[in-house]
């Protein structure tokens, strides 16, 4: 059963002679619980696809169905709610709020809803991420790997159905890369979350169930790595 589907998804930047088509009528289906890697050269449109699926960018054409609802038609408030509750977005450069503690950064999507996470779930996530002794620290006081783990914790806190990771290991060393990928796989298995991972690293991509290759804004190959 598809959790996510796009139809003719198009995104263009600039106008006139400087116009660039980042995504060109992309059709894509992703089943619930799948771990999908999206690969492609720089500027191929893979991050743009992820941002459109995460509701942080708006398409110029086409539809994005998430659980059979077209999020491209959402207004600002509904889209914000979608970002808070339905998807977790992980960036290459962590993007934590530097003035808030690690704990508050992790809880941010729930706090924006004026909610507190359940203690059991919060402790479970923190234990999994290995951030138990860093919760009151500010992001600037953590290493790159720890910051990325905090960002993953933030993406997981609302138990969203979909996790979108945009080059989450692009700024990390090998050891931290392996740890982060393990965490994502664990999350995929343990919480049955659908994961879309954008990466340059073929080794990282091989950890996924399915690999989609994008070039010039179009899907040029879509292979299942494992059933």
């Amino acid at each position: 059963m598809d959790i996510l589907r796009t139809e003719g998804l198009t995104r263009q930047y600039g106008t006139g002679q400087t116009m660039v088509t980042a995504l060109d009528h992309v059709d894509l289906q992703v089943e619930r619980g799948q771990f999908v890697a999206i690969i492609g050269a720089s500027g191929s449109g893979k991050s743009t696809l992820l941002h459109l699926l995460g509701g942080v960018d708006r398409p110029d054409g086409g539809k994005i169905f998430v659980e059979d609802v077209d999020i491209a038609t959402f207004g600002e408030e509904l889209l914000a709610q979608y970002r808070r509750r339905k998807v977790g977005l992980i960036y290459q450069f962590y993007n934590l709020i530097p003035t808030l503690s690690v704990k508050k950064n992790i809880c941010l999507p729930m706090l924006l809803d004026n909610k507190e996470p359940g203690k059991e779930r919060f402790d479970d996530i923190v234990k999994t991420l290995g951030l138990g002794d860093r919760l009151e620290h500010l992001p600037g006081q953590l290493s790159g790997g720890q910051q990325q783990r905090a960002a993953i914790g933030r993406a997981l806190i609302y138990q969203p159905a979909i996790l979108l990771a945009d080059e989450p290991t692009g700024n990390l060393d090998r050891k931290n890369t392996e740890e982060i990928i393990s965490l994502l796989k664990l999350s995929n298995r343990q919480y049955k979350q659908t994961i879309l991972l954008v990466t340059h690293d073929e080794n990282v991509a091989l950890e996924a169930d399915r690999i989609i290759k994008i070039e010039d804004g179009k899907i040029i190959s879509d292979k299942a790595v494992r059933p």
Binding site: E76, R83, R84, L89, N95, L108, L112, D113
Partner: peptide
Amino acid sequence: QLGILKSVGAGPKQ
């Protein structure tokens, strides 16, 4: 930072 807040679900009013 406002972009980060937005991307994790802060609404336009917030």
